[in-house]
């Protein structure tokens, strides 16, 4: 009997395992429409009522998927947060031959409620050890948006800004689920000129752009600077001041740097990732 109880405990624990940020296996499966997997987890004793990182239970995701199959496309409610008044500011003309063509930032596309949820998420994540000397004076926390709520919010911001401004962002606005927070808490933290790597999804699609969502204001210092070229000295194409809720999007191959943060601008917190 004791052995049976111990085995049951192990199975329940496995099924209820959570990723960083509080997503459960059941929520991740339900959010992606894997109902067969959800049934398996429930059979193994998973708590299918437990809320995930988006504060939703698996049943809510199942209902959303069910509604999408029943209703006509135009009748399906939008589960994405509606951006209030997104404004797209172009930094490099789309017609430019520069690697940064189309770079822009969007203000008002990510609501304060989403920023608050991202703050709460950040506070729940473990901080990764500083692994590389090229990392600079910043700390990183990794998050995989298995339930898709952050991806949805970013997509809504990009599509909303494109609709309102009539301009196209440099990418589709579909963020990769793997993201990381960067925290600059010490004066002097910054990054030298560099370009970013792309990320390839399991379906074979490769990201084109980097996104940076600033979660704090920097009154002085801490700007993200887009450069004409990697070799220094280089002409500055644009310097973007960190503002809470500001979403910066630029092609991976656009040379850029992070200006050093100064004491008055601390802390600088941002969410960074890749977009298709």
């Amino acid at each position: 009997m004791a052995i049976f109880m111990a085995c049951s405990y192990v199975l329940v624990c496995l099924a209820d395992t959570r990723s960083h940020g509080g997503s459960t296996a059941a929520c991740a499966a339900a959010a992606r429409g894997h109902t067969k997997v959800l049934a398996l987890l429930a059979e193994a004793g998973a708590d299918v009522g437990a809320l995930g990182s988006a504060r939703l239970a698996p049943v809510e995701y199942v209902l959303r998927h069910a509604l999408a199959t029943i209703l006509q496309p135009g009748q399906v409610p939008s589960w994405q947060p509606v951006p209030p008044e997104p404004r797209l500011v172009r930094l490099v003309p789309p017609s430019s031959l520069h690697a940064g063509a189309g770079a822009c930032y969007i203000d008002g596309g990510v609501s304060e409620s989403v920023c608050v949820a991202l703050d709460e998420l950040y506070s729940s994540l473990p901080m990764a050890a500083r692994a590389r000397c090229s990392q600079g004076l910043n700390d990183r926390s990794y998050y995989c948006d298995a339930e898709g709520w952050v991806v949805n919010a970013l997509r809504a911001a990009v599509l909303g800004a494109a609709r309102v401004s009539g301009e196209s962002p440099p990418c589709e606005g579909e963020a990769m689920v793997q993201m990381r927070y960067l925290l600059y808490a010490e004066a002097g933290g910054g990054l030298p000129p560099h370009v970013d790597l792309s990320r390839t999804r399991r379906d074979g699609r490769t990201s084109k752009c980097t996104f940076i969502l600033y979660l704090t204001d920097c009154t002085v210092g801490g700007e993200t600077v887009l450069l004409q070229r990697l070799a220094q000295p280089s002409r500055v194409l644009a310097a973007v001041t960190p503002r809470r809720g500001r979403l910066l999007i630029f092609p991976h191959l656009c040379p850029h740097l992070a200006r050093e943060v100064v004491a008055e601008g601390l802390p600088k917190l941002l969410l960074r990732g890749e977009m298709l």
Binding site: H20, A25, V37, L40, Y142, A146
Partner: peptide, 19 residues
């Protein structure tokens, strides 16, 4: 690095046999 183990990944990607 995202705190996901084999069970979580199997569930998230819909690999029912692996799960």
């Amino acid at each position: 690095e995202y705190g996901q183990n084999a069970v979580f990944l199997s569930a998230a990607y819909g690999h029912s046999a692996a799960l």
